[in-house]
Nucleic acid binder design. Sequence first.
DNA 1: TGCATATATATCATTTTACGCAATATTTCC
DNA 2: GGAAATATTGCGTAAAATGATATATATGCA
Lengths: 285, 285
Amino acid sequence: MDTRVLKQFVTLAECLHFGRASETSHVSPSALSRSIRRLETETGATLFERNNRSVELTRAGHLFLTYARDALGQWDSIQNLLMEESGELRGEISMYCSVTASYSFLFEILTRFRHDHPHVEIKLHTGDPEDAVARVLAGDEDISIGARPGRLHAGLAFKLIEFSPLVFIAAEGQPGPDARNWAETPMILSERGLARRRVDEWFRSLDVQPRIYAQVAGNEAIVSMVSLGFGVGVVPRIVLENSPLSDSVCILDVKPKLKDYEVGLFTLEKKLASPLISAFWQQLK
Amino acid sequence: MDTRVLKQFVTLAECLHFGRASETSHVSPSALSRSIRRLETETGATLFERNNRSVELTRAGHLFLTYARDALGQWDSIQNLLMEESGELRGEISMYCSVTASYSFLFEILTRFRHDHPHVEIKLHTGDPEDAVARVLAGDEDISIGARPGRLHAGLAFKLIEFSPLVFIAAEGQPGPDARNWAETPMILSERGLARRRVDEWFRSLDVQPRIYAQVAGNEAIVSMVSLGFGVGVVPRIVLENSPLSDSVCILDVKPKLKDYEVGLFTLEKKLASPLISAFWQQLK
DNA sequence: TGCATATATATCATTTTACGCAATATTTCC
DNA sequence: GGAAATATTGCGTAAAATGATATATATGCA
Protein backbone atom coordinates (compact mmCIF):
# COMPACT_ATOMS: atom_id res chain seq x y z
CA MET A 1 0.00 0.00 0.00
CA ASP A 2 1.13 3.45 -0.80
CA THR A 3 0.51 5.79 2.08
CA ARG A 4 3.20 8.25 1.10
CA VAL A 5 0.95 10.35 -1.08
CA LEU A 6 -1.59 10.64 1.70
CA LYS A 7 1.12 11.61 4.16
CA GLN A 8 2.41 14.18 1.72
CA PHE A 9 -1.06 15.58 1.32
CA VAL A 10 -1.59 15.88 5.06
CA THR A 11 1.80 17.50 5.51
CA LEU A 12 1.03 20.05 2.83
CA ALA A 13 -2.41 20.66 4.24
CA GLU A 14 -0.82 21.39 7.59
CA CYS A 15 1.95 23.74 6.56
CA LEU A 16 0.40 25.08 3.35
CA HIS A 17 3.78 25.51 1.72
CA PHE A 18 5.16 23.28 -1.02
CA GLY A 19 8.77 23.97 -0.18
CA ARG A 20 8.51 23.18 3.51
CA ALA A 21 6.13 20.30 3.00
CA SER A 22 8.44 18.72 0.45
CA GLU A 23 11.31 19.03 2.89
CA THR A 24 9.33 17.38 5.65
CA SER A 25 8.32 14.63 3.24
CA HIS A 26 11.89 14.17 2.02
CA VAL A 27 11.04 14.72 -1.62
CA SER A 28 11.75 17.53 -4.03
CA PRO A 29 9.20 20.31 -4.44
CA SER A 30 8.52 19.21 -7.98
CA ALA A 31 7.77 15.67 -6.89
CA LEU A 32 5.37 16.93 -4.25
CA SER A 33 3.70 19.23 -6.73
CA ARG A 34 3.12 16.35 -9.10
CA SER A 35 1.91 14.01 -6.36
CA ILE A 36 -0.72 16.53 -5.30
CA ARG A 37 -1.70 17.14 -8.88
CA ARG A 38 -2.07 13.43 -9.47
CA LEU A 39 -4.26 13.20 -6.42
CA GLU A 40 -6.38 16.00 -7.77
CA THR A 41 -6.88 14.48 -11.20
CA GLU A 42 -7.59 11.16 -9.56
CA THR A 43 -10.26 12.54 -7.28
CA GLY A 44 -11.41 15.03 -9.87
CA ALA A 45 -11.45 17.74 -7.27
CA THR A 46 -9.23 20.74 -6.65
CA LEU A 47 -7.79 20.13 -3.20
CA PHE A 48 -5.67 23.25 -2.86
CA GLU A 49 -6.35 26.70 -4.19
CA ARG A 50 -2.90 27.94 -4.95
CA ASN A 51 -1.01 30.56 -6.84
CA ASN A 52 2.71 31.11 -6.71
CA ARG A 53 2.41 32.91 -3.43
CA SER A 54 -0.11 31.15 -1.27
CA VAL A 55 -1.60 27.70 -0.73
CA GLU A 56 -5.03 27.13 0.75
CA LEU A 57 -7.24 24.14 1.31
CA THR A 58 -10.44 24.15 -0.69
CA ARG A 59 -13.71 22.86 0.67
CA ALA A 60 -13.03 19.55 -1.05
CA GLY A 61 -9.52 19.64 0.37
CA HIS A 62 -10.87 19.83 3.89
CA LEU A 63 -13.10 16.85 3.26
CA PHE A 64 -10.21 14.93 1.82
CA LEU A 65 -7.99 15.90 4.74
CA THR A 66 -10.43 14.30 7.14
CA TYR A 67 -10.44 11.22 5.00
CA ALA A 68 -6.66 11.13 4.69
CA ARG A 69 -6.06 11.40 8.42
CA ASP A 70 -8.59 8.68 8.98
CA ALA A 71 -7.13 6.40 6.35
CA LEU A 72 -3.61 6.85 7.68
CA GLY A 73 -4.83 6.13 11.18
CA GLN A 74 -6.49 2.94 10.07
CA TRP A 75 -3.43 1.85 8.19
CA ASP A 76 -1.45 2.37 11.36
CA SER A 77 -4.02 0.41 13.32
CA ILE A 78 -3.95 -2.59 11.05
CA GLN A 79 -0.16 -2.53 11.05
CA ASN A 80 -0.16 -2.55 14.82
CA LEU A 81 -2.79 -5.23 14.96
CA LEU A 82 -0.83 -7.51 12.65
CA MET A 83 2.25 -6.77 14.68
CA GLU A 84 0.59 -7.90 17.87
CA GLU A 85 -0.71 -10.92 16.04
CA SER A 86 2.74 -12.01 14.97
CA GLY A 87 4.36 -10.93 18.21
CA GLU A 88 7.18 -9.40 16.22
CA LEU A 89 7.61 -5.68 16.05
CA ARG A 90 8.22 -4.00 12.71
CA GLY A 91 8.36 -0.47 11.53
CA GLU A 92 10.31 2.66 12.11
CA ILE A 93 11.11 4.95 15.01
CA SER A 94 12.64 8.34 14.50
CA MET A 95 14.91 9.64 17.23
CA TYR A 96 16.66 12.86 17.98
CA CYS A 97 19.55 13.44 20.35
CA SER A 98 22.90 15.08 20.72
CA VAL A 99 26.07 13.56 19.39
CA THR A 100 27.12 12.94 22.97
CA ALA A 101 23.97 11.07 23.77
CA SER A 102 24.38 8.89 20.70
CA TYR A 103 27.91 8.02 21.82
CA SER A 104 27.04 7.26 25.40
CA PHE A 105 23.88 5.56 26.69
CA LEU A 106 22.03 5.54 23.39
CA PHE A 107 24.49 3.08 21.94
CA GLU A 108 23.72 0.58 24.66
CA ILE A 109 19.98 1.17 24.48
CA LEU A 110 19.86 0.75 20.73
CA THR A 111 22.03 -2.33 20.76
CA ARG A 112 19.64 -4.03 23.15
CA PHE A 113 16.56 -2.83 21.33
CA ARG A 114 17.87 -3.91 17.95
CA HIS A 115 18.61 -7.32 19.35
CA ASP A 116 15.08 -7.71 20.70
CA HIS A 117 13.37 -6.20 17.65
CA PRO A 118 15.57 -6.64 14.60
CA HIS A 119 12.87 -5.49 12.19
CA VAL A 120 12.37 -2.09 13.72
CA GLU A 121 14.38 0.55 11.96
CA ILE A 122 15.74 3.45 13.93
CA LYS A 123 16.14 6.72 12.09
CA LEU A 124 18.57 8.70 14.22
CA HIS A 125 19.03 12.43 13.87
CA THR A 126 21.54 14.35 15.90
CA GLY A 127 21.64 18.00 16.81
CA ASP A 128 21.45 20.48 19.63
CA PRO A 129 19.81 18.71 22.61
CA GLU A 130 18.05 21.96 23.48
CA ASP A 131 15.72 21.22 20.53
CA ALA A 132 14.80 17.82 21.93
CA VAL A 133 11.47 18.84 23.41
CA ALA A 134 10.50 21.10 20.53
CA ARG A 135 11.12 18.48 17.88
CA VAL A 136 8.99 15.92 19.66
CA LEU A 137 6.22 18.42 20.24
CA ALA A 138 6.30 19.43 16.60
CA GLY A 139 5.93 15.80 15.60
CA ASP A 140 9.25 15.79 13.75
CA GLU A 141 10.52 12.89 15.83
CA ASP A 142 8.99 10.08 17.79
CA ILE A 143 11.49 10.14 20.61
CA SER A 144 14.22 12.53 21.64
CA ILE A 145 16.85 12.71 24.34
CA GLY A 146 17.47 15.83 26.36
CA ALA A 147 17.33 17.48 29.74
CA ARG A 148 14.01 17.64 31.55
CA PRO A 149 12.80 21.24 31.70
CA GLY A 150 11.38 22.67 34.93
CA ARG A 151 7.81 22.23 33.84
CA LEU A 152 6.86 19.43 31.49
CA HIS A 153 4.71 20.43 28.55
CA ALA A 154 1.20 18.95 28.65
CA GLY A 155 1.00 15.66 26.78
CA LEU A 156 4.74 15.17 26.94
CA ALA A 157 6.11 12.03 28.56
CA PHE A 158 9.54 11.93 30.11
CA LYS A 159 11.63 9.02 31.29
CA LEU A 160 14.75 9.64 33.33
CA ILE A 161 17.93 7.94 32.20
CA GLU A 162 20.38 9.50 34.60
CA PHE A 163 21.34 12.63 36.47
CA SER A 164 24.29 14.57 35.16
CA PRO A 165 25.72 17.55 37.02
CA LEU A 166 25.92 20.79 35.10
CA VAL A 167 29.51 21.84 35.58
CA PHE A 168 31.74 24.80 34.92
CA ILE A 169 34.80 23.94 32.88
CA ALA A 170 37.98 25.75 32.04
CA ALA A 171 41.11 24.93 30.08
CA GLU A 172 43.65 22.90 32.02
CA GLY A 173 45.94 25.14 34.12
CA GLN A 174 43.61 28.11 34.68
CA PRO A 175 43.51 29.93 38.03
CA GLY A 176 41.31 28.35 40.76
CA PRO A 177 37.73 29.33 41.38
CA ASP A 178 38.34 31.44 44.45
CA ALA A 179 40.63 33.77 42.63
CA ARG A 180 38.19 34.12 39.79
CA ASN A 181 36.52 37.36 39.11
CA TRP A 182 33.30 36.35 37.41
CA ALA A 183 32.55 39.74 36.00
CA GLU A 184 35.71 39.58 33.94
CA THR A 185 35.80 35.91 33.08
CA PRO A 186 34.99 35.31 29.41
CA MET A 187 32.11 32.83 29.25
CA ILE A 188 31.24 30.35 26.51
CA LEU A 189 27.54 29.66 26.83
CA SER A 190 24.70 28.08 24.99
CA GLU A 191 22.74 30.50 22.87
CA ARG A 192 19.54 29.38 24.52
CA GLY A 193 17.81 26.56 26.29
CA LEU A 194 17.82 25.13 29.77
CA ALA A 195 21.56 25.34 30.42
CA ARG A 196 21.59 28.98 29.41
CA ARG A 197 18.65 29.83 31.64
CA ARG A 198 20.25 28.16 34.62
CA VAL A 199 23.53 29.95 34.08
CA ASP A 200 21.81 33.30 33.64
CA GLU A 201 19.97 32.70 36.87
CA TRP A 202 23.18 31.70 38.60
CA PHE A 203 24.85 34.96 37.61
CA ARG A 204 21.78 36.90 38.68
CA SER A 205 21.86 35.27 42.11
CA LEU A 206 25.47 36.41 42.41
CA ASP A 207 24.44 39.83 41.18
CA VAL A 208 27.09 39.66 38.51
CA GLN A 209 26.82 40.73 34.91
CA PRO A 210 28.65 37.96 33.02
CA ARG A 211 31.10 38.73 30.27
CA ILE A 212 29.95 36.55 27.41
CA TYR A 213 32.71 35.73 25.01
CA ALA A 214 30.72 33.47 22.72
CA GLN A 215 27.29 31.99 22.41
CA VAL A 216 27.26 28.66 20.61
CA ALA A 217 24.87 25.87 19.83
CA GLY A 218 25.74 22.38 21.01
CA ASN A 219 27.70 21.31 24.07
CA GLU A 220 30.47 19.77 22.03
CA ALA A 221 31.28 23.18 20.59
CA ILE A 222 31.49 24.63 24.10
CA VAL A 223 34.02 22.01 25.12
CA SER A 224 36.08 22.74 22.02
CA MET A 225 36.21 26.46 22.65
CA VAL A 226 36.96 26.05 26.34
CA SER A 227 39.75 23.60 25.64
CA LEU A 228 41.29 26.14 23.30
CA GLY A 229 41.40 28.57 26.17
CA PHE A 230 38.76 31.04 25.05
CA GLY A 231 37.03 31.06 28.41
CA VAL A 232 34.92 29.21 30.91
CA GLY A 233 31.96 27.13 29.82
CA VAL A 234 29.07 25.27 31.33
CA VAL A 235 28.12 21.79 30.14
CA PRO A 236 26.57 18.62 31.53
CA ARG A 237 29.29 16.40 32.91
CA ILE A 238 28.23 13.57 30.64
CA VAL A 239 29.39 15.59 27.68
CA LEU A 240 32.87 15.74 29.17
CA GLU A 241 32.89 12.05 29.91
CA ASN A 242 32.38 11.31 26.25
CA SER A 243 34.56 14.00 24.85
CA PRO A 244 37.96 13.31 23.32
CA LEU A 245 38.94 16.71 24.74
CA SER A 246 38.11 15.84 28.33
CA ASP A 247 41.78 15.78 29.28
CA SER A 248 42.28 19.31 28.06
CA VAL A 249 39.72 20.84 30.39
CA CYS A 250 39.08 20.72 34.11
CA ILE A 251 35.95 21.02 36.15
CA LEU A 252 35.81 24.07 38.40
CA ASP A 253 34.54 23.67 41.94
CA VAL A 254 32.01 26.43 41.80
CA LYS A 255 29.58 27.41 44.55
CA PRO A 256 26.64 27.31 44.56
CA LYS A 257 26.42 24.27 42.33
CA LEU A 258 24.04 24.34 39.42
CA LYS A 259 21.11 21.97 39.58
CA ASP A 260 21.77 18.57 38.02
CA TYR A 261 20.54 17.86 34.55
CA GLU A 262 17.90 15.16 34.45
CA VAL A 263 18.76 13.50 31.17
CA GLY A 264 16.08 11.32 29.72
CA LEU A 265 13.72 10.48 26.88
CA PHE A 266 10.85 12.54 25.61
CA THR A 267 7.89 11.42 23.60
CA LEU A 268 4.29 12.43 23.16
CA GLU A 269 2.04 10.59 25.59
CA LYS A 270 -0.31 9.69 22.80
CA LYS A 271 2.51 7.97 20.95
CA LEU A 272 2.87 5.52 23.79
CA ALA A 273 -0.23 3.86 22.38
CA SER A 274 1.88 2.68 19.46
CA PRO A 275 3.40 -0.75 20.11
CA LEU A 276 6.72 0.36 18.70
CA ILE A 277 7.15 3.43 20.84
CA SER A 278 5.72 1.63 23.79
CA ALA A 279 8.17 -1.24 23.42
CA PHE A 280 11.07 1.17 23.26
CA TRP A 281 9.76 3.03 26.29
CA GLN A 282 9.13 -0.06 28.35
CA GLN A 283 12.53 -1.52 27.66
CA LEU A 284 14.25 1.22 29.58
CA LYS A 285 14.43 1.34 33.36
CA MET B 1 -3.74 6.77 -4.10
CA ASP B 2 -3.10 3.22 -5.03
CA THR B 3 -6.09 1.07 -4.28
CA ARG B 4 -5.24 -1.58 -6.84
CA VAL B 5 -3.19 -3.68 -4.49
CA LEU B 6 -5.96 -3.69 -1.93
CA LYS B 7 -8.48 -4.68 -4.58
CA GLN B 8 -6.19 -7.45 -5.74
CA PHE B 9 -5.85 -8.68 -2.20
CA VAL B 10 -9.60 -8.75 -1.66
CA THR B 11 -10.13 -10.52 -4.96
CA LEU B 12 -7.60 -13.18 -4.07
CA ALA B 13 -9.03 -13.54 -0.59
CA GLU B 14 -12.40 -14.16 -2.14
CA CYS B 15 -11.51 -16.71 -4.77
CA LEU B 16 -8.35 -18.13 -3.16
CA HIS B 17 -6.79 -18.83 -6.53
CA PHE B 18 -3.95 -16.81 -8.05
CA GLY B 19 -4.85 -17.62 -11.61
CA ARG B 20 -8.48 -16.63 -11.38
CA ALA B 21 -7.79 -13.67 -9.13
CA SER B 22 -5.21 -12.33 -11.54
CA GLU B 23 -7.67 -12.66 -14.38
CA THR B 24 -10.33 -10.77 -12.47
CA SER B 25 -7.78 -8.10 -11.61
CA HIS B 26 -6.58 -7.88 -15.21
CA VAL B 27 -2.96 -8.57 -14.34
CA SER B 28 -0.68 -11.53 -14.95
CA PRO B 29 -0.40 -14.19 -12.27
CA SER B 30 3.20 -13.27 -11.62
CA ALA B 31 2.30 -9.65 -11.04
CA LEU B 32 -0.38 -10.64 -8.58
CA SER B 33 1.95 -13.00 -6.80
CA ARG B 34 4.46 -10.21 -6.37
CA SER B 35 1.86 -7.69 -5.25
CA ILE B 36 0.71 -10.01 -2.50
CA ARG B 37 4.25 -10.77 -1.50
CA ARG B 38 5.02 -7.08 -1.33
CA LEU B 39 2.02 -6.57 0.85
CA GLU B 40 3.24 -9.31 3.12
CA THR B 41 6.74 -7.93 3.54
CA GLU B 42 5.27 -4.51 4.06
CA THR B 43 2.94 -5.61 6.81
CA GLY B 44 5.40 -8.17 8.11
CA ALA B 45 2.65 -10.75 8.29
CA THR B 46 1.88 -13.82 6.21
CA LEU B 47 -1.54 -13.10 4.76
CA PHE B 48 -2.04 -16.32 2.79
CA GLU B 49 -0.90 -19.80 3.65
CA ARG B 50 -0.20 -21.26 0.25
CA ASN B 51 1.55 -24.10 -1.45
CA ASN B 52 1.41 -24.91 -5.13
CA ARG B 53 -1.96 -26.46 -4.75
CA SER B 54 -4.03 -24.40 -2.35
CA VAL B 55 -4.38 -20.88 -1.04
CA GLU B 56 -5.84 -20.04 2.34
CA LEU B 57 -6.25 -16.92 4.40
CA THR B 58 -4.26 -16.85 7.60
CA ARG B 59 -5.54 -15.34 10.79
CA ALA B 60 -3.64 -12.17 9.97
CA GLY B 61 -5.07 -12.36 6.46
CA HIS B 62 -8.59 -12.29 7.81
CA LEU B 63 -7.81 -9.24 9.89
CA PHE B 64 -6.27 -7.54 6.90
CA LEU B 65 -9.25 -8.46 4.74
CA THR B 66 -11.56 -6.63 7.09
CA TYR B 67 -9.26 -3.67 6.95
CA ALA B 68 -8.95 -3.78 3.17
CA ARG B 69 -12.69 -3.88 2.58
CA ASP B 70 -13.11 -1.01 4.97
CA ALA B 71 -10.37 1.05 3.39
CA LEU B 72 -11.74 0.49 -0.11
CA GLY B 73 -15.19 1.44 1.07
CA GLN B 74 -13.91 4.65 2.57
CA TRP B 75 -11.98 5.49 -0.56
CA ASP B 76 -15.17 5.03 -2.51
CA SER B 77 -17.03 7.20 -0.05
CA ILE B 78 -14.61 10.08 -0.27
CA GLN B 79 -14.63 9.83 -4.05
CA ASN B 80 -18.38 10.05 -4.04
CA LEU B 81 -18.38 12.85 -1.55
CA LEU B 82 -15.97 14.91 -3.61
CA MET B 83 -18.04 14.13 -6.67
CA GLU B 84 -21.16 15.50 -5.06
CA GLU B 85 -19.20 18.48 -3.89
CA SER B 86 -18.07 19.36 -7.38
CA GLY B 87 -21.35 18.40 -8.97
CA GLU B 88 -19.42 16.68 -11.72
CA LEU B 89 -19.44 12.93 -11.97
CA ARG B 90 -16.20 11.05 -12.48
CA GLY B 91 -15.19 7.47 -12.45
CA GLU B 92 -15.94 4.31 -14.28
CA ILE B 93 -18.95 2.14 -14.98
CA SER B 94 -18.59 -1.34 -16.36
CA MET B 95 -21.37 -2.58 -18.62
CA TYR B 96 -22.28 -5.83 -20.23
CA CYS B 97 -24.64 -6.39 -23.11
CA SER B 98 -25.07 -8.16 -26.41
CA VAL B 99 -23.64 -6.86 -29.63
CA THR B 100 -27.17 -6.10 -30.76
CA ALA B 101 -27.88 -4.03 -27.68
CA SER B 102 -24.71 -2.04 -28.15
CA TYR B 103 -25.73 -1.27 -31.73
CA SER B 104 -29.28 -0.28 -30.93
CA PHE B 105 -30.49 1.59 -27.87
CA LEU B 106 -27.23 1.53 -25.97
CA PHE B 107 -25.63 3.81 -28.52
CA GLU B 108 -28.20 6.48 -27.88
CA ILE B 109 -28.11 6.03 -24.12
CA LEU B 110 -24.35 6.27 -23.96
CA THR B 111 -24.19 9.25 -26.26
CA ARG B 112 -26.52 11.15 -23.99
CA PHE B 113 -24.78 10.00 -20.82
CA ARG B 114 -21.36 10.87 -22.15
CA HIS B 115 -22.57 14.31 -23.03
CA ASP B 116 -23.93 14.90 -19.55
CA HIS B 117 -20.98 13.32 -17.75
CA PRO B 118 -17.89 13.49 -19.93
CA HIS B 119 -15.56 12.32 -17.17
CA VAL B 120 -17.27 9.04 -16.53
CA GLU B 121 -15.65 6.22 -18.42
CA ILE B 122 -17.75 3.37 -19.67
CA LYS B 123 -16.09 -0.01 -19.91
CA LEU B 124 -18.28 -1.96 -22.28
CA HIS B 125 -18.13 -5.72 -22.58
CA THR B 126 -20.24 -7.62 -25.03
CA GLY B 127 -21.35 -11.23 -24.99
CA ASP B 128 -24.30 -13.53 -24.73
CA PRO B 129 -27.18 -11.54 -23.18
CA GLU B 130 -28.23 -14.67 -21.31
CA ASP B 131 -25.28 -13.99 -18.99
CA ALA B 132 -26.50 -10.48 -18.22
CA VAL B 133 -28.07 -11.29 -14.87
CA ALA B 134 -25.33 -13.65 -13.76
CA ARG B 135 -22.53 -11.20 -14.47
CA VAL B 136 -24.19 -8.46 -12.47
CA LEU B 137 -24.91 -10.82 -9.59
CA ALA B 138 -21.33 -12.01 -9.60
CA GLY B 139 -20.14 -8.43 -9.35
CA ASP B 140 -18.29 -8.66 -12.65
CA GLU B 141 -20.19 -5.72 -14.06
CA ASP B 142 -22.00 -2.75 -12.67
CA ILE B 143 -24.80 -2.77 -15.21
CA SER B 144 -25.92 -5.20 -17.84
CA ILE B 145 -28.62 -5.35 -20.50
CA GLY B 146 -30.79 -8.38 -21.01
CA ALA B 147 -34.28 -9.82 -20.85
CA ARG B 148 -36.11 -9.74 -17.56
CA PRO B 149 -36.48 -13.27 -16.19
CA GLY B 150 -39.79 -14.44 -14.75
CA ARG B 151 -38.70 -13.94 -11.19
CA LEU B 152 -36.22 -11.24 -10.31
CA HIS B 153 -33.36 -12.30 -8.09
CA ALA B 154 -33.39 -10.70 -4.65
CA GLY B 155 -31.34 -7.51 -4.56
CA LEU B 156 -31.45 -7.15 -8.32
CA ALA B 157 -32.87 -3.99 -9.82
CA PHE B 158 -34.41 -3.93 -13.30
CA LYS B 159 -35.40 -1.05 -15.52
CA LEU B 160 -37.42 -1.69 -18.64
CA ILE B 161 -36.17 -0.20 -21.87
CA GLU B 162 -38.64 -1.72 -24.28
CA PHE B 163 -40.67 -4.78 -25.15
CA SER B 164 -39.46 -6.89 -28.00
CA PRO B 165 -41.50 -9.82 -29.34
CA LEU B 166 -39.76 -13.17 -29.36
CA VAL B 167 -40.28 -14.30 -32.94
CA PHE B 168 -39.76 -17.40 -35.02
CA ILE B 169 -37.66 -16.77 -38.08
CA ALA B 170 -36.89 -18.77 -41.19
CA ALA B 171 -34.89 -18.19 -44.32
CA GLU B 172 -36.69 -16.15 -46.94
CA GLY B 173 -38.91 -18.34 -49.17
CA GLN B 174 -39.68 -21.17 -46.73
CA PRO B 175 -43.16 -22.79 -46.61
CA GLY B 176 -45.78 -20.97 -44.50
CA PRO B 177 -46.46 -21.74 -40.86
CA ASP B 178 -49.67 -23.72 -41.36
CA ALA B 179 -47.99 -26.25 -43.56
CA ARG B 180 -45.14 -26.64 -41.14
CA ASN B 181 -44.66 -29.87 -39.33
CA TRP B 182 -42.93 -28.80 -36.11
CA ALA B 183 -41.70 -32.23 -35.21
CA GLU B 184 -39.65 -32.34 -38.37
CA THR B 185 -38.54 -28.71 -38.60
CA PRO B 186 -34.87 -28.32 -37.78
CA MET B 187 -34.58 -25.75 -35.01
CA ILE B 188 -31.69 -23.39 -34.20
CA LEU B 189 -31.99 -22.54 -30.53
CA SER B 190 -30.05 -20.94 -27.71
CA GLU B 191 -28.11 -23.39 -25.64
CA ARG B 192 -29.68 -22.05 -22.50
CA GLY B 193 -31.33 -19.08 -20.94
CA LEU B 194 -34.71 -17.45 -21.03
CA ALA B 195 -35.35 -17.78 -24.78
CA ARG B 196 -34.55 -21.47 -24.64
CA ARG B 197 -36.84 -22.06 -21.69
CA ARG B 198 -39.72 -20.28 -23.40
CA VAL B 199 -39.25 -22.22 -26.58
CA ASP B 200 -39.04 -25.53 -24.73
CA GLU B 201 -42.24 -24.69 -22.94
CA TRP B 202 -43.90 -23.71 -26.22
CA PHE B 203 -43.10 -27.09 -27.75
CA ARG B 204 -44.30 -28.82 -24.62
CA SER B 205 -47.63 -27.00 -24.78
CA LEU B 206 -47.98 -28.25 -28.36
CA ASP B 207 -46.95 -31.67 -27.18
CA VAL B 208 -44.25 -31.79 -29.81
CA GLN B 209 -40.72 -33.07 -29.47
CA PRO B 210 -38.66 -30.49 -31.39
CA ARG B 211 -35.95 -31.53 -33.76
CA ILE B 212 -32.97 -29.47 -32.67
CA TYR B 213 -30.51 -28.91 -35.44
CA ALA B 214 -28.09 -26.72 -33.50
CA GLN B 215 -27.71 -25.09 -30.13
CA VAL B 216 -25.71 -21.90 -30.21
CA ALA B 217 -24.78 -19.04 -27.94
CA GLY B 218 -25.77 -15.55 -28.98
CA ASN B 219 -28.73 -14.39 -31.00
CA GLU B 220 -26.59 -13.08 -33.81
CA ALA B 221 -25.36 -16.60 -34.46
CA ILE B 222 -28.94 -17.86 -34.66
CA VAL B 223 -29.80 -15.28 -37.30
CA SER B 224 -26.74 -16.28 -39.31
CA MET B 225 -27.59 -19.95 -39.29
CA VAL B 226 -31.23 -19.36 -40.09
CA SER B 227 -30.39 -17.05 -42.98
CA LEU B 228 -28.18 -19.78 -44.37
CA GLY B 229 -31.20 -22.07 -44.43
CA PHE B 230 -30.25 -24.49 -41.68
CA GLY B 231 -33.62 -24.24 -40.00
CA VAL B 232 -36.01 -22.14 -37.94
CA GLY B 233 -34.81 -20.02 -35.09
CA VAL B 234 -36.23 -17.95 -32.28
CA VAL B 235 -34.83 -14.51 -31.47
CA PRO B 236 -36.06 -11.22 -30.08
CA ARG B 237 -37.28 -9.04 -32.93
CA ILE B 238 -34.85 -6.31 -31.93
CA VAL B 239 -32.03 -8.55 -32.99
CA LEU B 240 -33.49 -8.75 -36.47
CA GLU B 241 -34.00 -5.03 -36.65
CA ASN B 242 -30.32 -4.49 -36.11
CA SER B 243 -29.06 -7.36 -38.18
CA PRO B 244 -27.46 -6.88 -41.58
CA LEU B 245 -29.07 -10.23 -42.44
CA SER B 246 -32.61 -9.13 -41.67
CA ASP B 247 -33.53 -9.14 -45.36
CA SER B 248 -32.52 -12.76 -45.70
CA VAL B 249 -34.95 -14.05 -43.12
CA CYS B 250 -38.65 -13.68 -42.52
CA ILE B 251 -40.74 -13.74 -39.39
CA LEU B 252 -43.20 -16.65 -39.16
CA ASP B 253 -46.70 -15.96 -37.96
CA VAL B 254 -46.75 -18.64 -35.30
CA LYS B 255 -49.60 -19.34 -32.85
CA PRO B 256 -49.59 -19.12 -29.91
CA LYS B 257 -47.21 -16.23 -29.80
CA LEU B 258 -44.30 -16.35 -27.38
CA LYS B 259 -44.35 -13.87 -24.58
CA ASP B 260 -42.56 -10.61 -25.36
CA TYR B 261 -39.05 -10.05 -24.10
CA GLU B 262 -38.81 -7.27 -21.58
CA VAL B 263 -35.45 -5.83 -22.46
CA GLY B 264 -33.90 -3.63 -19.86
CA LEU B 265 -31.06 -2.85 -17.50
CA PHE B 266 -29.93 -4.84 -14.52
CA THR B 267 -27.89 -3.73 -11.60
CA LEU B 268 -27.54 -4.58 -7.94
CA GLU B 269 -29.87 -2.54 -5.80
CA LYS B 270 -27.06 -1.68 -3.46
CA LYS B 271 -25.11 -0.19 -6.33
CA LEU B 272 -27.80 2.39 -6.83
CA ALA B 273 -26.34 4.09 -3.79
CA SER B 274 -23.34 5.01 -5.91
CA PRO B 275 -23.79 8.40 -7.56
CA LEU B 276 -22.41 7.08 -10.83
CA ILE B 277 -24.71 4.12 -11.16
CA SER B 278 -27.58 6.13 -9.83
CA ALA B 279 -27.04 8.87 -12.40
CA PHE B 280 -26.98 6.34 -15.20
CA TRP B 281 -30.10 4.70 -13.84
CA GLN B 282 -32.00 7.95 -13.37
CA GLN B 283 -31.20 9.19 -16.83
CA LEU B 284 -33.26 6.44 -18.43
CA LYS B 285 -36.99 6.38 -18.45
C1' DT C 1 5.99 -45.67 -7.59
C1' DG C 2 5.87 -42.79 -11.49
C1' DC C 3 3.76 -39.77 -14.71
C1' DA C 4 0.58 -35.98 -15.96
C1' DT C 5 -1.49 -31.91 -14.38
C1' DA C 6 -2.15 -27.78 -11.86
C1' DT C 7 -0.25 -23.76 -9.96
C1' DA C 8 2.58 -20.49 -7.31
C1' DT C 9 6.92 -18.35 -8.03
C1' DA C 10 11.62 -16.97 -10.13
C1' DT C 11 14.00 -14.92 -14.15
C1' DC C 12 14.70 -11.60 -17.53
C1' DA C 13 13.69 -8.13 -20.95
C1' DT C 14 10.64 -4.38 -21.64
C1' DT C 15 7.64 -0.75 -20.54
C1' DT C 16 5.90 2.43 -17.42
C1' DT C 17 6.37 5.48 -13.77
C1' DA C 18 8.60 8.55 -10.55
C1' DC C 19 12.16 11.59 -9.45
C1' DG C 20 15.50 15.44 -9.18
C1' DC C 21 17.59 19.24 -11.37
C1' DA C 22 17.26 23.23 -13.71
C1' DA C 23 14.51 26.56 -16.04
C1' DT C 24 10.09 29.15 -16.16
C1' DA C 25 6.23 31.81 -15.00
C1' DT C 26 3.77 34.44 -11.75
C1' DT C 27 2.84 36.82 -7.59
C1' DT C 28 4.03 39.91 -3.84
C1' DC C 29 6.74 43.08 -1.47
C1' DC C 30 9.64 47.02 -1.19
C1' DG D 1 9.45 48.90 -11.41
C1' DG D 2 12.66 45.61 -9.77
C1' DA D 3 13.75 41.76 -6.69
C1' DA D 4 12.64 37.86 -4.11
C1' DA D 5 9.80 34.00 -3.35
C1' DT D 6 7.69 29.92 -5.00
C1' DA D 7 4.65 26.67 -7.53
C1' DT D 8 5.14 24.42 -11.83
C1' DT D 9 7.04 22.32 -16.15
C1' DG D 10 10.60 20.04 -19.37
C1' DC D 11 13.81 16.75 -19.72
C1' DG D 12 17.10 13.16 -18.84
C1' DT D 13 17.84 9.41 -15.69
C1' DA D 14 16.82 5.92 -12.25
C1' DA D 15 13.68 2.85 -10.22
C1' DA D 16 9.71 0.09 -10.18
C1' DA D 17 6.24 -2.75 -12.15
C1' DT D 18 4.85 -5.86 -15.60
C1' DG D 19 4.29 -9.89 -18.80
C1' DA D 20 6.06 -13.93 -21.02
C1' DT D 21 8.45 -17.83 -20.15
C1' DA D 22 10.68 -21.18 -17.39
C1' DT D 23 10.85 -23.65 -13.01
C1' DA D 24 9.75 -26.04 -8.96
C1' DT D 25 6.63 -28.49 -6.28
C1' DA D 26 2.46 -30.58 -4.82
C1' DT D 27 -1.60 -33.48 -6.10
C1' DG D 28 -4.15 -37.14 -8.26
C1' DC D 29 -4.42 -41.24 -10.74
C1' DA D 30 -2.85 -45.53 -12.77
